[in-house]
Design a protein around this nucleic acid. Structure first.
Length: 1062
RNA sequence: GGGCGAUUAGCUCAGUCGGUUAGAGCGCCUCUCUGAUAAGGAGGAGGUCCCUGGUUCGAAUCCAGGAUCGCCCA
């Protein structure tokens, strides 16, 4: 280590550790932001800026957030921070989803309740309070977690979907639907959970199939006309047999009557062998159409419920020929397809079980039995009556309730719907105005919209939006559209109405237009109504006067200070410029928002959407608590740290599932270490040299006298432009890769190439330029990386910028986004050429057996391209340094080193020559052409310089490498001086190794004892001082007797001893 | 059955407007640097760009069909 002048100024950088402690650093930065109100400063700074409207999709405040939530929240924060750095005004309103079964089920568990009956016994008021308390608890937990992630939101003003204003906004929407005739009650076969006592929406069936084993039955339905004959059905749901009303056959298929011990059994001919074996005796065959219309005796005709039913065979085109018997048992009250067929055939609908999945009184001996428990009794009964052919079991995929794991059933129930047809086309049109990222999500939305059924909005539960539908005894319905309307119509006092929830709301009766008394239906609403209304309820749509803190009425009191803005505010912030959620929200929140918005204002509530796929573990498997591969946010954030986590999310291609885990996190951490190393390098030398930049330097940029400096500044400009394009397109991986690439270039190329400039003892202009350039690189990197890794960027900023200039912005997040400047393409191209030349030079060197450590006299860089020669000219020093040569000669005489080949530029020539290309290519390859100036005459064409490319091949006998018209040769001849210098380098290398293995500190001074031979003695004479200074050696001595390590190189052998000075 | 994707190195994945030599990271091997050092650099091995056909002077890229996987709907 060379001696340095004493520190000139008192600048002081915070010391930088060898590796970053992300966790400690992040907590430090969080404390700094808190202490200085950095976020508040940012909001104040951007107040009045061009609005950037982001609307947060509410997170269910029901459990701690997971790392999959952190993905979305990191993306949201990334784009918000980016827009804020560009000076946009943002709302920063976070949202919590508060109502619905998700919350109810968790509360049931925590209270030890196990059925709807138990909830009612517990008391709906206490239950509602418990639900609200759970939301309060976990919204606080999620807020804490989000802050730790670094998400900047106006946490005190989060919206809660359970507040009265939110609920009232939905009432208004429902009223509008009613006025347009879109609201109706309907019978629907619903997927039903008997434990939860409620239907499940389509959304809730996602991933609901599990491996289950169920009883299967083959059952005879004897024909009325020919009692010994029967159609035989197969079912996997025995409990539905008491509700049988028909048997379906494929009219176009062939059916066979098979003689069995029980009589004559009709099944589909294709199924005979599977069912009865190859030896089955077929009495006769008939087309399915012949069986259609035949009456049969049902298996449970003795039950009261079956009294009026006339069973018959019906035709159906969906009868499967590859399983069962080819005759399908139809119970329209127990299956979706059965129900549809029943509508066509006019079949009666028997609903055998109640809300709890238990048979009703009309089912006699079955009454009170649960569907799963009834299978055995049903099989036994059928056995007694002779209807049972055989019982078996099946292992299959069967849907279960996502909340409690109970087998789901189908049940026809009365629910409330909003018809989709009147808005279908308008929704498709509105969705087409949206920019979908990734693009195919737009097609998915369109597909969903084309196929969507009516929206079932009712749930027979407790903690949710109370549907404002009031029924008189006569069955007349009134829809209430606001709290004011409720107040006007109420018969009962609203004094006891603590909030718009059950049970309080249930006590309020109203008077209808016709003067009748009406009570509220007991149903609550689908929670996607709660979330879908948010662009209206939180932005003040239709409100005349704003109310500060007014959003918190009802269940939100004490939880939030969100305002209730007015129509002007809505007009400013609607529609959202951008929203982002995971892909499944296409059918959920993106859909419900769109639906409500199209109904209310006839257009899309968002301009652009970023969707993303699923988060899996690092092996690509879905994360499941029960599989033990789930990663808890709280663990991950204090292990890998927020920046590493956020950078992983930024790098992830949104349209692909993410493999998340500690392994990938480590890889990313190592890449961030490169930035840290560059930072540490700068601080070490800036501290030593007393280099202190000013904030103004970041604005003006560094001087660009040297080619290397010009290049890295051009790289920064190029990166800024690339980041702008990527972030404007909401595509983070391109952004993150561009930043990583710049980090790599700063570290691996700029710093490596500039190190000697920083080591230099004298304070010259070039060293100053190097400091200013590296500092500028780091500062711009901080700003570019800040949206994605806000903590690390802030840490660097504090030390590099704010610590050096009190007038600088106090936070990188207040520093503004770098302005894209014109990119110095020439500098980039020149360096690319130089890098190619260096790479070629290395390859050329590698052809000889000389180590890179051995200095060589000269490298020749040759190219026929004059512009390229001029470009490389300015980078001769870089090339010489990297190739360890004394000089670099630039030559145009490629021919002495190389053969030249003319290759067509296909992009330019393709359109012009077309089919002639292969012929011209052949002629050029064969050398059958004339060079005329810059042009080439070949096959009747004259090709201009832009239409050809000159390529070269090395001639034999040279250490030459070439690529694309560029060739590099190295002179491998060694004279004594070069050889000695090489040997000196070897010795230095050896001594450094000894120093290291002896455990000396980098700054320790040493003495060297060695016994040289003549050659080595000559080397020491020539290069002794270099060796001493390189190894921090005070003296090289030659005592008579040396014990130590053996140094061997070339023709030298010496014993060397390295001694630490005291 | 309909729709939307995916398929590129041992692994994880980029690959823009179609351009003739398909890249990165990790892993592996070799070398190198030793004043960023629990780092850094160079090189190498490793590819039927899923398959078939088409369009084109030219296809990983565009089109058609197929296979496999994933997701959505029915």
């Amino acid at each position: 280590m060379r001696l340095r002048p004493p520190r000139l100024s008192a600048v002081s950088y915070q010391p930088v550790t060898a590796t970053p402690d992300h966790i400690a650093l992040e907590h430090r930065v969080l404390a700094l932001w808190e202490q200085e109100g950095t976020f508040e400063q940012l909001r104040a700074k951007n107040s009045g800026g061009a609005p950037f409207s982001f609307i947060d999709g509410p997170i269910t405040a029901n459990n701690p957030m997971g790392v999959h939530h952190a993905w979305g929240r990191s993306l949201k924060d990334l784009f918000q921070r980016h827009r804020a750095m560009r000076g946009h005004e943002l709302r920063y309103q976070n949202g919590f989803d508060c109502q619905g079964l998700w919350v109810e089920v968790e509360v049931e568990k925590s209270l030890g309740l196990n059925s709807k009956q138990e909830i009612e016994e517990y008391g709906l008021d206490r239950f509602a309070r418990a639900c609200r308390d759970r939301v309060a608890e976990y919204s606080a937990v999620q807020t804490r977690q989000s802050k730790r992630l670094g998400q900047w939101m106006d946490w005190d003003r989060s919206y809660y979907t359970m507040t009265d204003p939110n609920i009232a906004s939905i009432w208004h929407f429902l009223k509008v639907c009613d006025e347009r005739g879109m609201l109706y009650r309907g019978n629907r076969p619903m997927v039903w959970c008997p434990r939860c006592g409620t239907s499940l929406s389509q959304h809730e069936l996602i991933d609901s199939y599990r491996d289950r084993t169920h009883t299967t039955l083959h059952v005879r339905f004897p024909l009325v006309d020919a009692p010994e004959e029967a159609v035989v059905i197969w079912t996997t749901t025995p409990w539905t047999l008491p509700a049988n009303v028909a048997a379906a056959v494929d009219p176009t298929a062939e059916y066979a009557a098979v003689r069995t011990s029980q009589g004559i059994d009709w099944v589909m001919a294709a199924r005979v062998e599977d069912l009865f074996g190859a030896a089955a005796e077929i009495v006769r065959t008939a087309a399915g159409a012949e069986l259609v219309g035949k009456a049969y005796r049902g298996p449970f005709d003795d039950l009261e419920a079956q009294a009026e039913v006339a069973h018959r065979v019906v035709a159906w085109d969906m009868v499967a020929a590859d399983e069962g018997t080819g005759v399908v048992h139809i119970a329209p009250g127990c299956g979706a397809e059965d129900f549809e067929l029943g509508k066509v055939e006019g079949l009666p609908v028997l609903v055998p079980v109640d809300e709890a999945g238990r048979f009703t009184e009309a089912y006699g001996w079955l009454a009170g039995q649960a569907t799963d428990a009834a299978a055995a009794g049903i099989a036994e009964h059928l056995g007694k009556t002779g209807a049972l052919v055989r019982a078996g079991s099946i292992d299959h995929r069967f849907p279960v309730c996502w909340r409690c794991g109970t087998d789901l059933i189908f049940r026809v129930v009365e629910e409330w719907f909003i018809s989709a047809e009147p808005v279908r086309q308008a929704m498709i049109d509105a969705a087409a105005t949206v920019t979908w990222v990734p693009e195919q999500y737009g097609k998915r939305m369109e597909d969903w919209l084309r196929n969507m059924g009516d929206w079932c909005i009712s749930r027979k539960r407790y903690w949710g939006l109370p549907l404002p539908f009031y029924r008189t005894e006569a069955g007349e319905y009134t829809v209430i559209g606001s709290v004011e309307e409720l107040r006007e119509r109420a018969i009962d006092s609203l004094d006891g109405l603590e909030e718009l929830h059950r049970p309080w709301i249930d006590g309020i009766r109203i008077r209808t237009d016709s003067g009748e008394v009406a009570e509220r239906v007991t149903e609550v609403g689908d929670c996607w109504l709660d979330a879908g209304i948010v662009p209206f309820s939180t932005l003040g749509w239709g409100r005349e006067a704003a109310v500060e803190g007014g959003y918190a009425e009802g269940a939100g009191v004490g939880l939030t200070r969100a305002d209730l803005p007015d129509q002007a505010y809505w007009e400013k912030w609607f529609p959202a410029d951008w929203i982002s959620e995971m892909r499944e929200q296409i059918r959920l929140w993106f859909y419900s928002q769109l639906f409500m918005s199209v109904v209310l204002v006839g257009r899309a509530p968002y301009r652009s959407v970023l969707g993303y796929e699923k988060l899996h573990d690092e092996t690509g498997r879905a994360m499941h608590k029960s599989w033990g591969n789930a990663i808890w946010f709280d663990d991950a954030i204090e292990d890998m740290g927020a920046d590493v986590m956020r950078w992983m999310y930024a790098l992830q291609t949104p349209s692909q599932n993410m493999s998340f885990g500690y392994g990938p996190a480590n890889e990313v951490r190592r890449r961030l270490l490169t930035l840290w190393n560059s930072y540490a390098f700068f601080v070490r030398y800036a501290e030593i040299d007393g280099f202190s930049p000013t904030w103004a330097d970041a604005e003006t940029g560094p001087p660009t006298a040297s080619a290397l400096d010009r290049w890295i500044v051009a790289r920064i400009d190029e990166t800024v432009a690339a980041c702008d394009v990527a972030l404007d397109a909401y595509w983070t991986p391109t952004y993150a890769r561009a930043v990583e690439s710049l980090i790599d270039d700063v570290s691996a190329w700029y710093i490596r190439g500039s190190r000697a400039r920083f080591w230099r003892a004298e304070n010259d202009g070039d060293k100053e330029a190097a400091f200013r350039t590296l500092w500028y690189c780091l500062v711009q990197l901080c700003r570019l990386a800040a949206p994605a890794m806000p903590f690390l960027a802030e840490e660097l900023w504090q030390n590099l910028v704010r610590g050096q200039d009190a007038g600088a912005p106090s936070s990188v997040h207040l520093a503004g986004w770098p302005v894209a400047k014109p990119v110095d393409r020439a500098a980039l191209d020149a360096m690319a050429l130089a890098q190619t030349a260096i790479s070629l030079g290395r390859a050329a060197r590698a052809q000889s057996s000389l180590k890179l450590r051995q200095p060589l006299r000269e490298a020749v860089v040759a190219t026929p391209d004059a512009a390229a020669r001029a470009a490389v000219e300015g980078l001769r020093d870089e090339i010489a340094r990297e190739l360890n040569v004394k000089s670099v000669r630039i030559a145009d005489a490629v021919d002495e080193l190389l053969d030249v080949e003319v290759v067509p530029n296909f992009r330019a020539l393709g359109p012009r020559l077309g089919k002639d290309i292969p012929r011209v290519q052949q002629l050029l390859k064969a050398g059958d052409y004339q060079r005329v100036g810059d042009c080439v005459e070949v096959g009747g064409y004259t090709l201009g310089p832009d239409e050809i490319e000159l390529r070269t091949r090395p001639r034999e006998g040279f250490a030459v490498a070439d690529e694309g018209g560029l060739a590099v040769a190295v002179d491998t001849e060694l004279d004594d001086e070069l050889a000695d210098e090489g040997l000196a380098r070897e010795l230095i290398h050896f001594i450094q190794g000894e120093r290291k293995s002896a455990g000396f500190e980098v700054a320790d001074r040493i003495r060297i004892e060695l016994a040289p031979n003549d050659r080595l003695r000559r080397v020491l004479e020539r290069f002794g001082r270099d060796i001493e200074s390189e190894t921090l050696c005070s003296e090289i001595s030659e005592p008579g007797d040396v014990s130590g390590a053996q140094f061997e190189a070339d023709d030298c052998v010496a014993t060397v001893r390295v001694i630490r000075d005291r």
